[in-house]
């Protein structure tokens, strides 16, 4: 699959201009073969087409198909696949369980993304200000959950939510709030959101912290001399400069939100309030594997993929971001 393309073939064509540093005379006597970049790209293109391109096309095709049962539906010839138009999409969008799952994911995103990115930015700024002795330790500690797979994180938190195990309940009882069932219907959304916040804050903090470290110190030495407080410096200088990184963390968080699957699936054995269609991706799973309705599953997959793309791309357009630019 990933065999190395042969490159050392006799030169037949000269490649297009090779970029060189400005002002230097170009040596083109040993110019590269025109096929070279394609040879380097070949394994990536083959895999891209096979595992990203083809599944999208196949899903789009399936989403327009359905099975027609003739006669009693017995025998191999009685079930034939025919064109279905947009009926699978109509079925998907009007499914009584689809919109609630979209609403749930929307509410979940509205909790997770601001809380997670807010905490990540706060911790990154606190670390960058360097006014504490515990910077090294806390940075590692807060980043650590990134090393814990979502399934394991859900498992750990799932146990910590169980009333018989939970220290959270001990605390809440202690302050007289009573003992809520964290895995019950009124808390489950927050319970799942907390797992995502726990798992994602550290990674985003590191991204923002790295961006802050790249700012030359003299950019705010002057402000400091003028008596600006750290908060003013953070608000007026640091945050505007790292805005591109914040855009990136937002887009990646948005994508992660739309595909939430592992956390609620793992919590299901511990909570009876998580239905099999709790998130859109879980509904796709149920349709494809429990109901054997791959046509409807394909239609919902296409809808989710388009929605993800539209949201992340639309956001990048909206903020006029130069993230993901092609420099050359």
């Amino acid at each position: 699959m990933t065999t190395v393309p042969a490159i050392e073939q006799p030169a037949t064509e000269r490649s297009a201009a090779v970029p060189t540093a400005a002002g230097r005379p170009r040596r083109r006597s040993h110019s590269r073969r025109a096929g070279t970049p394609y040879a380097f790209l070949a394994p990536a293109i083959v895999l891209f087409v096979a595992f990203l391109g083809a599944p999208i096309v196949y899903a789009a095709y399936l989403s327009l198909r359905k099975v027609k049962v003739s006669g009693l539906g017995l025998g191999s010839g009685s079930r034939t696949e025919i064109w279905a138009g947009l009926s699978n999409y109509a079925r998907s969008l009007t499914d009584p369980e689809f919109l609630p799952s979209v609403g749930r994911i929307g509410a979940y995103g509205l909790i997770v993304v601001p809380v997670m990115l807010g905490l990540a930015l706060l911790f990154a700024l606190l670390l960058d200000a360097g006014r504490t002795k515990v910077g090294g330790f806390t940075r590692t500690a807060i980043f650590l959950p990134y090393a814990v797979p979502a399934v394991v994180a859900s498992l750990l938190w799932g146990f910590l939510y169980l009333p018989r195990v939970s220290p959270i309940n001990d605390v809440l009882e202690g302050i007289g709030v009573g003992s809520p069932n964290l895995l019950g219907s009124s808390w489950i959304l927050y319970a799942v959101a907390n797992i995502a916040v726990w798992g994602g804050t550290g990674f985003n903090m590191i991204v923002l912290y790295t961006a802050l470290k790249a700012i030359p110190q003299d950019m705010y030495e002057a402000a400091r001399l003028d008596g600006a407080t750290e908060i003013q410096i953070a608000w007026r200088i640091k945050i505007p400069i790292i805005a591109p990184s914040m855009v990136m963390t937002f887009v990646f968080s948005l994508i992660a939100t739309l595909q939430v699957f592992a956390e609620p699936m793992t919590l299901r054995p511990l909570s009876n309030t998580i239905s099999s269609t709790w998130t859109p991706l879980m509904k796709v799973y149920r349709d494809a594997f429990t109901r054997d309705d791959i046509y409807s599953a394909a239609a919902t997959s296409v809808i989710i993929a388009l929605a993800t793309f539209a949201l992340s791309f639309g956001f990048l357009k909206l903020v006029g971001s130069r993230a993901f630019r092609q420099e050359d």
Partner: peptide, 28 residues
Amino acid sequence: KFQFPGKSVVFNMVLAGVLVPGVILAIP
């Protein structure tokens, strides 16, 4: 490091791939 016909098509495909993550494609 190379200039070649089709480069921006390939690059835009890569970007599209970044924005539509593989997990959504798992069932297809």
